[in-house]
Write a protein that binds this DNA or RNA. Structure first.
Ligand SMILES: [Zn+2]
Ligand SMILES: [Zn+2]
Length: 825
DNA sequence: AGCACGCCGACT
DNA sequence: GTCGGCGTGCTC
């Protein structure tokens, strides 16, 4: 094989067939510019159309015949080169999560920065519209008319105006009536801003002297610029007025200079904070710092599990660790589990670190995300704060990743690639010799296990930093309440506690993890349950909207007045959601001001902030909410938390059900007694003896862990096995079933060939827990394997997925593979 | 993904 | 005969 410069390039095509590296030659003039991570334009396919590609390796020989090798056409220079580290990360994701390389790249690059092809059409030169009118159809004439009118139009613009535009366009092209041009565009762009400053060649006095006394506007502009220095046109116009003509006049006289700069969009610009200093640490906090800082200095990779109860002061540790880190010239990423929690984190970090912080999460606009990404890339900031996607922040000198509330399921991506931020963090930290700090009051069983076996370093903090006592927790057995004839949603104890709390003018939080009014409605006579026509799930009744709503597809319909099956008029509403809790609470405690915080009351922008603000100001006595109120809320006057039903998630057929329940109770309990006065928590349940509930009420994580790990061990669930969850979905149930069965058959066969023990370790295929969503039937296959077999197993699954044999069967069936799923549902 | 090639049925 | 439908296969 001949020597020379060659590169391995992945093409930006979302197809399994092109998910591999292609060899391209690097020409002399590009040789010293192209590197691993370069974004390039390459010719691809028979047409040699240009496509964006990513260089993943460079080498000086080619493995295939030179005849087949094309040159890299160009380097995308105005864009950003990915670091070698991020390229490696993408390849790791491709292997680990069985996704395409470009899917991983799409996680890593800011959305909208990948070049898209756009076809722009215009009339062929010297075309006489009248002369062709006889040879063309009505639709074709419409296209020609539009092109004549606008000069040029993009394919998408034409498609929206003319039916079957694609077909007609290709005919017009063939007859040489129009021509086409291909452009490459990003969805997102930089904002340019006009800046004005006084000329540097002339003194201010000189300028003023030669300005006529009557030119008041000119004088005030010059005066403003003299005082404030370079100013953007937007600000200047706002401040002193004037027109562009005035400005041009001044420019021509050589008094001012006009130039353009790039303007960065600034999310959270209005969040103003007062600077703060490092707090004095408690002994526990100091101990934690002492454990971690040596590793900071020696620059070796290590993961820490910071297990500290709510209010033990984990955030202050994050702050001081990062302070030490950026003192050494390295950068940090801090993840929070929910976008809504970024605001308070940013406040605390800005107070300490000023503008060295960038924010990354999916609720920023495309432009904001792009600009924040580039501030990180260009080294303008040292810290990135955000939700899951911030894990890909393109720092070049990453020294630490902190993941707060490490156990939260939101760190697992819902869509492909279904990556877990903690897993990605592990890989990034290892490659960067960086520290990974996982913080949690209720660690995931897997993480705690890793800490116990020494893979992570465990750091415990068991006291609150302000040494306020933990809230007292009591459990109420709702079966006993029922026996005593209390059918209300409030147990005697909770009712009394709310009453007392209202009297004392202290605030209360009521928690129920279910929104809506009634969970389902059903016929008394025949038992018929009203289900969503598109999904295999009962509809929830929302009283306010007077609708039955599907929480999976959003479909809403009027509640029926008679049974749809037998016509009976006796329809009963079952189950309680937050809306109903609100109604009952208002009825029971008419003197109280009650508010509700769930998806339904916070759909409008700013409504959540308003409710929380009113609650903080004491305008609300009683706040009812779902998951949303479980995290991050810090209101000192809340002294009572009532958990309406602690067992909603306890009996789901899932290995993580107990863990979730324990975490939720602990988290919600943590909202009580954060101020001076002691807090109280009342947990209502039908299973008061369940160990998750028992240990949660005693704030005994260790006790919970020890019992749970026994179960995980006995039933071979993580951390004692690795799970893979494969969902087959499609509109035709028969095809879905066939695909899942075929897949399973091939898999079992391969497993025995490979000598991987499938004994009792393949579950299904069977209908998924949600067997139909949005008209799509869902079947599921769960594979449990030994950790040592895991990578071989994913390899086998990947082969089956790509095999031609299965392609024929699954043409219309979607296969979604979840490696290390958070749950089995 | 995006394109060319090739094989069929309906049309000048 | 030929135009144009889509199923099939390949891309350094
Ligand atoms: Zn009925
Ligand atoms: Zn539905």
């Amino acid at each position: 094989m001949k020597q020379g410069h060659f590169s391995e390039v992945y093409i930006n095509h979302k197809s399994n067939h092109t998910d591999r590296a292609f060899t391209y030659a690097v020409t002399e003039e590009l040789a010293d510019k192209v590197c691993v991570g370069s974004r390039v334009m390459v010719p691809f396919g028979k047409s040699n159309n240009l496509v964006e590609g990513y260089v993943v390796a460079l080498k000086n020989h080619a493995d295939i015949d030179l005849r087949y090798i094309k040159n890299i056409h160009a380097l995308i220079e105005d864009e950003y080169t990915l670091s070698k580290e991020l390229i490696h990360l993408a390849r790791w994701m491709q292997q680990q999560y069985l996704c395409r390389f470009v899917d991983a790249i799409q996680c890593i690059l800011p959305t909208g920065s990948i070049l898209k092809k756009e076809k722009v059409y215009r009339l062929e030169d010297n075309l006489n519209l009248l002369s062709v009118i006889e040879k063309t159809t009505e639709r074709q004439q419409a296209i020609l008319q539009l092109l004549a009118q606008y000069g040029s139009l993009s394919e998408s613009q034409l498609q929206s105006q003319v039916e079957d535009a694609l077909k007609e366009l290709s005919k017009l092209l063939k007859h040489k009536l129009i021509r086409v041009e291909e452009l490459f565009k990003k969805d997102v762009n930089t904002i340019r801003e006009k800046m004005i400053q006084l000329s540097e060649n002339k003194s201010y006095e000189e300028i003023i002297k030669s300005t006529p006394k009557t030119a008041v506007k000119q004088k005030s502009i010059l005066d403003y610029l003299f005082q404030k220095g370079p100013t953007s046109w937007t600000v200047l116009r706002e401040a002193v007025g004037g027109s562009l003509t005035t400005l041009r006049g001044l420019q021509e006289k050589g008094f001012i200079e006009i130039y353009e700069t790039e303007k960065r969009r600034e999310p959270y610009k209005d969040l103003k904070v007062l600077p703060s200093q490092a707090y004095k640490l408690t002994r526990e906090q100091e101990h934690a710092m002492k454990e971690i800082t040596p590793y900071l200095k020696s620059q070796q990779h290590q993961t820490f599990l910071l297990h500290g109860i709510t209010g033990s002061g984990k955030t202050e540790i994050y702050l001081q660790l990062i302070e030490a880190l950026i003192g050494m010239g390295r950068d940090a990423i801090l993840l929070v589990p929910e976008i809504s929690l970024t605001t308070q984190m940013i406040e605390r970090f800005r107070a300490r670190f000023g503008d060295q912080i960038a924010v990354l999460h999916s609720r920023l606009s495309l432009g904001e995300r792009y600009d924040e990404w580039r501030r990180i890339y260009n080294g303008e900031v040292k810290i990135a704060i955000g939700a899951r996607s911030a894990i890909f922040a393109p720092f070049r000198n990453l020294g630490m990743i902190i993941i707060d509330e490490e156990h939260e399921h939101s760190y697992k991506s819902d869509y492909s690639p279904k990556y877990h931020a903690v897993e990605v963090a592990e890989v990034r930290c290892r490659e960067n010799s960086a520290l990974l700090v996982l913080g949690s009051a209720t660690p995931s069983v897997e993480s705690y296990n890793k800490a116990l076996v020494g893979e992570y370093k465990l750091i415990q903090m068991i006291n609150r930093y302000n040494s306020n006592p933990l809230p007292t927790v009591s459990v109420v057995d709702m079966r006993e309440e029922l026996q005593r004839g209390n059918k209300s949603i409030f147990s005697e104890a909770l009712y009394q506690a709310i009453k007392d709390n209202l009297k004392r003018k202290e605030q209360t939080i009521l928690f129920l993890n279910r929104r809506g009014y009634s969970t389902f409605i059903s016929c008394r006579k025949c038992g018929f349950v009203v289900k969503c026509p598109q999904c295999e799930i009962a509809l929830t009744y929302h009283k306010n909207a007077h609708h039955l709503t599907c929480h999976y597809c959003g479909q809403a319909q009027k509640p029926p007045t008679s049974c749809m099956q037998c016509g009976s008029k006796y329809i009963k509403y079952f189950g309680i959601g937050t809306e109903k809790v609100e109604k009952i609470t208002k009825d029971c405690f008419p003197e109280a001001v009650v508010a509700r915080l769930d998806l339904d009351t916070t759909s409008r922008k700013g409504s959540m902030e308003k409710i929380l603000k009113d609650y903080a100001a004491g305008k609300i006595d009683l706040l009812i909410g779902t998951q949303m109120i479980a995290k991050g809320l810090d209101f000192p006057n809340v002294t009572l938390v009532g958990i309406i039903a602690a067992d909603t998630s306890l009996n789901l057929p899932d290995f993580r059900a107990s863990e979730k329940t324990f975490q939720l109770i602990t988290q919600v309990s943590g909202r009580a007694g954060r101020g001076e006065r002691p807090g109280r928590v009342i947990v209502q349940t039908y299973e008061p003896k369940h160990f998750a509930i028992q240990h949660a009420t005693k704030s005994d994580y260790k006790g919970f862990y020890e019992q749970e790990i026994q179960l995980r061990s006995a039933f071979l669930y993580p951390p004692f096995s690795r799970l893979i969850n494969i969902i087959f979905s499609g509109a035709e149930e028969g095809e879905v079933i066939k695909a899942s069965q075929e897949f399973t058959a091939i898999l079992s066969n391969s497993l025995s060939l490979e000598g991987i023990e499938p004994f009792k370790r393949i579950y299904g295929p069977a209908p998924a827990h949600l067997s139909k969503i949005k008209q799509n039937f869902r079947w599921q296959l769960i594979i449990k394997s030994k950790a040592v077999d895991h990578s071989r197993l994913t390899g086998i699954i990947n082969n089956i997925r790509l095999e031609n044999k299965i392609q024929d069967i699954i043409r219309r069936v979607n296969i979604s593979i979840d490696i290390n799923p958070y749950s089995m549902l």
